[in-house]
Amino acid sequence: MNQNYLPNHEKLIEAVNLADSADKLLDAVEALAEIRSIEAIPTLIEVLGYNNPGAAVAAVEGLIDIGEPSIPCLLESLDDYNYGARAWAIRVFAGVGDPQALNLLLKAASSDFSLSVRRAATRGLGFIRWSKLPPSKVHETQELILDTLLLVTEDGEWVVRYSSIVALEQLALTVTAEKIDFDQRIETRLKELFNDDPEIAIKARIKLALVKINTIKNTNI
């Protein structure tokens, strides 16, 4: 970044508040998201409720980049949100992988009305930051996630099933506790789905997942 010009978050926030067209709002939100400042969090969260998809995408990306500090604030805002804003919030939770939002992700992955929310929440379940959980809780949480993901492999939308394969792969690659049982359950389900699923893309992603899981297994032995 140019050292002579350090963006000032207050100016950027003001630009978001003053934007009087969709294009200006998008530019202002992108600029604010880019500074990755915790000062930007409340404004970015507000943008999720504006019913402007372009700006919301930029705000979601900004909040994910800021990461964990945005989570408590966002959890607090949820009650005031309409459906659309909640859906954007779920994407932030999925992208950050903070266990504080785990229950919301589990629920959204298995039962949200919108397939793109189920898709994002499902992927998020594979990328939870285990280091943020107390060690005593890790194993039962992983079990809970595995049960939900196995259920999501039966979703009616191909893209949600695709997401569940990516998440299961990630779980198999990162989970350490009781690994053998875990891997076996994941592999068994993936092979089953490979035989049952009519979608070429699903079969292809399962093949890739099995190759990746087996490569890791062989290097660990």
Binding site: L115, S116, R119, W158, V159, Y162, I200, A201, K203, A204, K207, L208, V211
Partner: peptide
């Protein structure tokens, strides 16, 4: 969502090509 549908079309085409040359992935 739309980008994923589009890429799925590409992937289906490519997997079909792969299967003719017997490559796994």
């Amino acid at each position: 969502s739309l980008k994923l549908i589009s890429l799925k079309g590409l992937l289906e085409y490519q997997v079909n090509q792969d299967s003719q040359s017997d490559i796994t992935v």
